[in-house]
Amino acid sequence: MTLLTAAFLTALLAGAITAGIPLLLAGLGEQLSEKTGVLNIGIEGMMLAGAYMGFLVAWKTDSVFLGFVGGAGGGMLVAAIMALLCVRFGLNQIVIGIALTLGAEGATAMLHYFQFAQTYPRLGAIASLPIPPLANIPVLGPALFNRPPIVYIALLLVAVFAYVYRKTYWGIALQAAGDKPAALDSSGVSVLGIRSVAVLLTGALVGLGGAFMAIVGAGIFVPFMTNGNGFIGIVLAMLARGRPLWVLGGAAMFGACLSLTTALQVAGVDIPTDVIQMLPFAAVMGVLVMLGRKANLPSALGAAYVRGAR
């Protein structure tokens, strides 16, 4: 098998990480929202806003760091609307989520059109930060340990979230906001406050994921470029049932499938990309059909919290 050369494997693995990091960030973000009882269908829009803002800031300032800050800010901007309408005012989370996705799609595409017309300026290559001993391992080294710092940060966030959810006061408060909001409220913690913060943080994480797609992944912004990645993030969060490590596993699987497409094309194997793009979805549906698990989601998911209401 001539396919299994070191170069091919490196490209495959590196591609899987590049495709998987946005999914990871989207999944972690959605998980955070869902834990507190907010079903956040709007993350596709937050991601797109993050991609656009991230690209724009990075392009204007020539700073990758500021680009990521801008991306997180863009995501938070959309998330703030969600927090206001769905958490504060208790509007239907699914309807507003769809609205935010449609709105962000239209708004970013329009802004891009007015700023750049039909041109797609490209950002410079992003500097990577090799981790000295590990970066020299063949295949794994260049793919995993010689990457831009944002990759390490995203992977580190998995551990941070796992720790916060399991070991800290905040983790328990988050969980309670989604499972028994009334109990949390009566113990003197603001349910709406916790949920608002969670939604805003979701926006930041997902926006960062979008910015990663634009700055690291593509190097350009194209309208509608998130192309369903936010929705895949929702799927990952639901499958992971509150465990950050499972989000990582899922993101790796989806990322590998997406990367296999390009890797095979580079290797000269002529398979339409659509065939391989079906793989991760087919796999997840297969798992659902075989395991047929009961959806294990926070019991107050999707319901607005109104004090005193039953």
Binding site: A99, L100, L102, G103, G106, A107, M110, P223
Partner: peptide, 11 residues
């Protein structure tokens, strides 16, 4: 794309 924005506002 403006139609998308209009739909979002409407929603």
């Amino acid at each position: 794309y403006f139609t998308l924005v209009t739909m979002a506002i409407l929603l």
